[in-house]
Design a protein around this nucleic acid. Structure first.
Lengths: 211, 211
DNA sequence: GTATCCAAAATTGGCGCCAATTTAGGATAC
DNA sequence: GTATCCTAAATTGGCGCCAATTTTGGATAC
């Protein structure tokens, strides 16, 4: 019910399963930064074949979630402060840029959908795993961006978010921080309702930068 | 001398060769949109093994430059008007956003470097292949972005530029258009010299949108 | 007791074969 | 003459083996 949120592509469904499995384990913090991803381990862990593992690792290396060292293997990327900051900066630029369009285009139904997603996030704060929380947050922001009317932008941001979120756990260290995120989501929806684009921009800006 | 411009990554150098080879052929317009990329053909054409071809195709599919149809193969993506427009929009947002920083940070040496690259582009307009022209243009824009001080942004834009440039030939259809691009490059450098950020933004905006 | 060197075990990664699916061509029936 | 079915060729893609490189553990020398 929650795992079908992904994309609507007719992509290689074949081996993507393994890729996503490893991806989720990294995002969930099970596979910590620096961990060496041995092919035999993954092979056994996910009950798949060697070529499947290798393709998954290659894809993750392309996404720059793991690093490939020739003849040594693949290991989860160490968190890079600079990169994280730069990605946040990019997100601020892009997400504030579409704020005007969002405020303009948002229908009553859109706002209702956002409220549902914001509420769902709150629910996951109380009783949900770290991954579910991460996905609830992602779903809210995706829906927000969809209203910007640029599908490519939605996909792009979804993509770059993964790049530095090697340890999403570390981002939401404190409970207070998470709860504040929840409140900010509601504030954003309010700003949209009141058609206050500038307020929305400032909210988005702060929301992104303090992670 | 011109082919070392790429990135400074310590990436899998092993099979990337093949990936880049196919990539360049697509960018150069040799492999037209819709063309089916048969594994045997590529294997012979680039004198490489089957697994290498397959990895290259998988990577290009990830980059969404080719589409994978299960049990049918891979074919070059058809140009998508909507996506092209959306990518341009994203580029305008990002490249104008860093204009302020560029104007602030640009040293005399930086400006000189830009002038050299702009001149090199002009040279390629006169006597250079389509691919060389493409790369000269890319080099100029990369150098411009580097001054923005966000490395991640530089890489990101380089990446998304490739997504829709299935047929770069079609972008620079007329000679007049190309020559105008060359002149605009010089105007951008001038704006930076005069520290006119707003002028630069408008130039960048128009430069990107009319392609 | 510590450092160095050597050997064995483990891991990566290149390569090719074969089964499954699809496509094209020809033969037959209408 | 045309449409349909069936067979054969071709293409994709899954899977496993083996060589090359690296790492680890132990033995030996200092």
């Amino acid at each position: 019910m929650a795992d079908v949120v992904m994309d609507s592509k007719h992509e290689p469904v074949d081996a993507r399963d393994v890729t996503d499995l490893v991806l989720q384990e990294i995002l969930a913090g099970v596979l910590l930064p620096g961990t060496w991803l041995k092919q035999i381990d993954l092979e056994r862990r996910y009950k798949c074949t060697r070529p499947e593992v290798r393709r998954a690792l290659d894809r993750l290396a392309q996404k720059r979630l793991v690093e490939h060292v020739p003849n040594r293997g693949y290991h989860v990327y160490e968190p890079d402060g600079r990169r994280a900051r730069e990605v946040s900066e990019i997100r601020v630029i892009l997400e504030t840029a579409v704020a005007d369009t969002i405020v303009e285009n948002a229908s009553a139904a859109d706002i209702a959908a956002l409220k549902t997603l914001a509420a769902h996030f709150d629910l996951m704060v109380l009783n949900g795993t770290m991954l579910e929380l991460y996905e609830a947050n992602l779903a809210f922001h995706r829906q927000l961006l969809v209203l910007g009317g640029n599908q490519e932008l939605v996909d792009l941001i979804t993509e770059i978010r993964q790049r530095t979120s090697s340890a999403p756990v570390s981002q939401w260290r404190t409970r207070a921080r998470v709860e504040r995120s929840g409140r900010e989501h509601h504030l954003m929806v309010e700003a949209i309702e009141k058609k206050e684009a500038e307020t929305l921009k400032e909210l988005v800006r702060q929301h992104i930068l303090q992670s």
